[in-house]
């Protein structure tokens, strides 16, 4: 929570990932590119949670994969502890992998059904032998199980013997095994029921406090992101359109997309029905293979003018508000009921 020491731990600079679209079987010809992530920059501080929100196809999961180095970027840098993570190889890359870990969305498919919980959580130690010597592993795994609120005696059970929330705890324990500094959480609670979701969110917050972790928390549920995040970035079609502290984004949004997104979230209060001012967006998100010119949001924006098609708005501070917003016509609008 608000205990970040201010020190920048990860600095992402103009990160780009284009997936080529090819035609032909023998002689593959590149005929276009899906611009999944297109110029994303942000900084992550030690001990803080950066929330990334956006609709499907906005590139938030590709961003996660890039930061995990599961994908290689088309351009851009990500500097972790003074080194560009995309230039690392060999032993250095292995150390990076220890430092940045991931919690996946679906606890049903991200755990190997044929392995026991002990094997799943202990597997990172096979590669990173220096973290836990062989004889010490079982004890370490049991410590991790206890840390995430599972019974250490269940070390020999299989994933199917656990419920969804418990499986997500196993996934978290696996991510913690190598004592990382950063955990990328890609929709960690969206597959869980409401009552279980709260348990996992609480666990993530507790672990952050105890272990001084930094989180990149990717989700589409805006109220969960607000609860857990210190700062929030809003993505649309491969770009961050607005970024700021949790309060700036939710209380004083200036980008029309952020405003529309926030206003569309159903409020769990039937009395708010009458005086809720929902901004209805027309149509769907355009294809990232062929994004609109200028501002990418202009095809669905009620404020769009000629300038929006010609000139791409930069993510900079606008006159109305001190936090960066990528809109030519940024203005304040209070939308949360």
């Amino acid at each position: 929570m608000a205990n970040s020491t201010g020190e920048v731990i990860l600095s992402v600079d103009n990160l780009v990932k284009h997936f080529p679209i090819t035609q032909g079987i023998l002689f593959k010809k590149k005929i276009g590119a899906v611009q999944a992530v297109d110029g994303v920059s942000f900084e992550l501080h030690r001990g803080e949670t950066l929330g990334i929100v956006g609709e499907s196809g906005c590139g938030k999961s590709t961003l996660a994969k890039l930061l995990m180095r599961l994908e290689h970027p088309t351009a851009g840098r990500a500097v972790l502890n003074g080194r560009d993570i995309f230039k690392l190889s060999g032993g250095e890359l292995r150390r990076l992998r220890r430092n940045v870990q991931m919690v996946m969305q679906d606890p049903y498919t991200s755990l190997n059904p044929r392995k026991t919980v002990g094997d799943i959580i202990g597997e990172p130690f096979e590669i990173h032998t220096e973290v836990a010597p062989r004889g010490d592993r079982q004890r370490r795994v049991q410590e991790l199980l206890e840390l995430v609120g599972l019974n250490p005696e269940h070390i020999n059970r299989y994933p199917h013997q656990f419920s969804g929330g418990q499986r997500q705890r196993i996934g978290i324990a696996r991510a913690l095994a190598l004592k990382p500094e950063i955990i990328v959480c890609d929709e960690p609670v969206s597959a869980l029921d409401v009552s279980i979701q709260a348990q996992v969110v609480n666990l993530l917050e507790k672990l952050q406090d105890e272990l001084k972790l930094s989180y990149i928390f990717i989700a589409h549920d805006l109220s969960v992101v607000r609860h857990i995040s210190d700062r929030v970035g809003v993505m649309y079609l491969g770009k961050i359109v607005e970024i700021g502290t949790e309060e700036e984004i939710y209380e004083r949004p200036t980008h029309p997309y952020t405003q529309a997104l926030l206003s569309a979230v159903p409020v769990p209060d039937p009395d708010a029905r009458a005086h809720r001012d929902v901004i209805r967006l027309e149509g769907d998100v355009p294809s990232p293979a062929n994004p609109p010119s200028g501002c990418r949001f202009r095809t669905r924006c009620w404020k769009a003018q000629e300038k929006c098609a010609l000139e791409e708005p930069l993510l900079i501070r606008r006159a109305v508000e001190p936090h960066p917003s990528a809109c030519h016509f940024a203005e304040l609008k209070h939308v949360v009921a």
Binding site: S195, A198, N202, E205, V224, R226, P268
Partner: peptide
Amino acid sequence: LISSIPRLNSKGQELATIKGL
């Protein structure tokens, strides 16, 4: 159920949970 939804005033606090499964 109702109290386990994150709300404005729950920021910085633990979410109320339903124990068990």
